[in-house]
Design a protein around this nucleic acid. Structure first.
Lengths: 271, 271
DNA sequence: CGTGGCCTTGAAGAATCTCAAATAATGTGG
DNA sequence: CCACATTATTTGAGATTCTTCAAGGCCACG
């Protein structure tokens, strides 16, 4: 049914990928004591470190994380990072771009189970039985750190902090899905879309972007799949929000005009 | 909003709780070498060991699990095991009875996020931030092992196997929620109820009960909440299945007449 | 034996989906 | 650089599914 491990895994080396090849001279003195400006893939140097895997880790552990030297991988818009059913080897951290994970029904229907942005981890559903339960693909040109799960496990074994961080990350995933279930199970179209937008807004804000004006990386169909409604309903609900003066919508460009209003829709007070 | 840690935690000591207080004499010789018939709470002796936490663990680890001497706790039908928001201290394993976990919306709506039966673990959503994201209560008189999470963590730290088991359990929870999301996001009433019944059937079978004839422990309203539909719709769908010759329904007593038929409804072939 | 909780069923209404068409945006090949 | 094919989005109208409201039955329990 599902394609198994047929994806060419193109692991990019540690050199900065934006820079020219000879920029690797940057990393020449990487054996120096504290490796100040060493490899751009080092967690301790990463601009995402407070959002990503190393969040909360202190020096001893952080350094050991750095020693793992995660490979990086670029994924073009529309390409898969991994497929459902594929063997689970890596956990991926988004460096740039946006991803969606999705499950496939037998009849071809697709159910989007999440959108992922910078600093977020993907692939933890593979821990259960060694194979990815869902697939993951890029919504725009993107880049990830490929973190070998086995190495991560070794680290967790030897460090209490690291173990804690890993457990929390998995549990957070459970909680995240909880709230999506609640949304899917007991909310109407407006509540769902409001919840979706508020969630996006928060995450963008946490990454230093404007929480009130942003560009959607996913199509109406993908939003619909995620929220359990048809793309036409998504579109109509966007229009409704616009007419209510809550949003300005121009295709995928969104400007939130009334954050409180959206919040009220998402969390209907009283009864 | 939510009640915080106001629940009287009644941890039953290791004595069998059905017995009278002085039955604690049962545990008097618990310091004996191999403790053959010692405490009924020992994982290595438990009839649920292949379904529950110790599943897959070998001797060295199993013994260390035994040494933790989990407390047990009885919960009467309708009583809460823990509430949403309460401080997270224990992971619970179902010994007997059935539980539901649920989230509460601000406006009082309840969303059931899972049903749990013998051998299943509950409470792992609390790992994320130290507080339970959802509450859990008994659908019938029930009993659980209360496993102090801190102890479990200690164990995982020192044993690779144990760490693996813990990670898998959490990931399994993620995968479980994935499939519920798919169900909520892209299936109609009949597909949802069929999926629910097939899932129950499987789990009962794994526990040695008949997969074709069983008693539902949850109300129509609870099923509906779990599946994202109203109780009347649940009832009507049961009736529809009965008219289609798929089931025999008598209140909460269910007999599956056509398992393949149910499966076809759940997984619509082609399109 | 009356009461309350749970379940079933009907009928009307509302929300969402389906089908269809028009428009805009984008990329392709000539 | 343009014509054309393709895709994404919006909007309308009718069909469908599910919900809401209401009534009645069954059963357990005091």
């Amino acid at each position: 049914m599902t394609e198994l491990a047929t994806v060419p895994v193109r692991l990019v080396s540690r050199a900065t990928s934006a820079a020219t090849p000879h920029s690797s001279s940057l990393t020449a003195d990487s054996s120096v004591a504290s490796r100040p400006t060493a490899l751009p893939t080092l967690c301790s140097n990463c601009h995402l470190k407070d959002l990503c895997l190393p969040c909360g880790l202190e020096e001893p552990d952080l350094e050991r994380l750095d020693e793992l030297r995660f490979g990086r991988r670029r994924v073009k818009a529309g390409e898969a990072l991994y497929h459902a059913g594929e063997r689970f080897q890596f956990v991926y951290a988004v460096r740039a771009g946006t991803f969606k994970s999705s499950l496939n029904l037998i009849d071809g229907r697709e159910q989007v189970s999440g959108f992922h942005m910078a600093g977020e981890l993907m692939g933890l559903d593979g821990v259960a039985n060694g194979h990815h339960a869902s697939g993951c693909s890029a919504l725009e040109d993107a880049e990830v750190c490929a973190i070998p799960y086995a190495h991560l496990n070794d680290l967790a074994r030897s460090s209490n902090e690291m173990q804690l961080v890993m457990s929390r990350l998995m549990s957070r995933e459970i909680v995240r899905e909880h709230s999506l279930m609640m949304l899917l199970g007991s909310m109407n179209a407006e509540e769902r879309l409001a919840g979706f937008l508020l969630n996006l807004s928060q995450r963008l804000k946490a990454r230093g972007y404007s929480p009130l004006e942003f560009h959607l990386r996913m199509s109406r169909a993908e939003i619909g799949s995620y929220l359990g409604m048809k793309l036409e309903t998504v579109s109509r609900t966007f229009s409704a929000f616009q007419h209510q003066g809550l949003l300005e919508v121009d295709k995928r460009h969104i400007r939130i005009l009334d954050l409180d209003g959206l919040t009220r829709i998402f969390q209907p007070q009283s009864h």
